[in-house]
């Protein structure tokens, strides 16, 4: 009797790339709903545009590269990239800018490096940074959280703004848009105002930006879910947030008048989203246990440095991209001690 043969192990677990990516999407749902709650239809429309263009772009490139399209699209990695990008974008960004960021992320940052698993940079963040440096005006034009202004834009209004690029009749940008809390903090600090005064603004909540702090909490929930399901490790998020809190706490302790307290840094921008969903992108992050701690901590540090002294109000994207570049070097110098090797430090 003849049998088929294969290499051991002859059994395998239930994991698959599709399942991993699916769990990431599931974990993003609470934060996404919170975005919808505070910023209205904009984020949802962005999500649609980004997903559609990302998937179309991935399919087109795979076709050009002569690869099977179905098996790759089914891994959902393009959808994850699109979601992360869309959640980082301002709610009313003109549609073509969203589409451009998404296509850039998939085509240039991901597929031109060889597709999933081969990209040295986080595609979503690279797409975000491209848009931020190309379109600084639209990319910093946010909405006030709805709980503050109380006037949600309707679905029709949102669609109109996103697809025409102009505010609805009878309204001006100034009336409907607002800076982000981080942006405002930056501007006012540069005008030599004290933290205590700045915090009187209606944009502030209990411990971070109003609305933002709760979106952060919902992302946190999703992130903890991913750690529980072992989709991501605890090292990168923990070290990144710890790094950010430590350095922010240090400066706040020295001079609380010109440096916001650490919780503000955690809950006012993309720190939580970045820590659990972006810095943990395994392809572009460090892979060794000690390396991940270093990688995360340095991202946290860079976020603070760029927010405080850099040219942009939020810094997660830049910090992640910079550390993406350092990841191979970190890996090289942080090889764990293997079984039976002594005296090379503990992992």
């Amino acid at each position: 009797m003849q049998f088929s043969i294969s290499s051991s192990p002859h059994q395998s677990g239930q994991q698959s790339v599709t399942r991993v990516m699916g769990l990431v999407l599931l974990a993003l749902v609470p934060g996404t709903l919170a975005m919808f709650w505070y910023f209205g239809w904009g984020p949802i429309i962005n999500l649609g545009i980004a997903t559609a263009t990302a998937v179309a772009a991935e399919a087109a490139v795979l076709h050009l590269r002569g690869r099977a399209i179905g098996v790759t699209l089914i891994d959902l990695s393009a959808v994850v990239t699109a979601w992360l990008l869309a959640l980082a974008l301002p709610p009313l960004l003109p549609w073509w800018q969203t589409a451009m960021g998404s296509v850039f992320a998939i085509v240039v940052v991901k597929q031109l490096f060889g597709g999933i698993g081969h990209n040295p940079f986080n595609p979503a963040m690279a797409g975000y940074v491209l848009l931020l440096v190309s379109f600084p005006v639209t990319m910093t034009r946010w909405l006030p959280p709805d709980v503050v202004s109380g006037s949600a834009l309707s679905l029709a209004d949102s669609l109109h703004i996103i697809f025409s690029g102009t505010p609805p009749l009878g309204q001006t940008w100034d009336a409907i848009s607002s800076a982000t809390p981080l942006d405002q903090m930056r501007t006012e600090l540069s005008q030599n105002r004290m933290i205590g005064e700045i915090r009187q603004s209606p944009l502030w909540g209990d411990f971070g930006g109003r609305g933002w702090e709760w979106i952060g909490n919902w992302y946190l929930l999703g992130g903890l879910f991913l750690i529980w399901r072992r989709v991501i490790g605890w090292r990168i998020p923990a070290s990144m947030l710890a790094g950010l809190v430590l350095i922010a706490g240090l400066f706040w302790a020295i001079d609380p008048d010109t440096h916001p307290f650490p919780a503000f840094h955690l809950f006012s921008g993309g720190a939580i989203l970045g820590a659990f969903f972006i810095a943990t992108d395994p392809v572009s992050a460090s892979t060794t246990p000690r390396g991940q701690l270093i990688y995360g901590a340095l991202i946290g540090l860079l976020v603070f440095v760029i927010r405080t002294w850099g040219g942009y109000p939020d810094a997660v994207a830049f910090a992640v991209l910079l550390m993406n570049m350092a990841a191979p070097t970190i890996d090289h110098y942080t090889q764990p001690r293997i079984f039976g090797q002594r005296g090379r430090g503990d992992a």
Binding site: V17, R230, G233, P282, V283, A285, P289, I338, F339, A347
Partner: peptide
């Protein structure tokens, strides 16, 4: 499929490789 470097393999490796 291409490796996504999730690190699950390193987590289960009994030789700590």
């Amino acid at each position: 499929r291409p490796c996504i470097r999730c690190g699950e393999c390193a987590r289960v490796c009994p030789a700590q490789l």
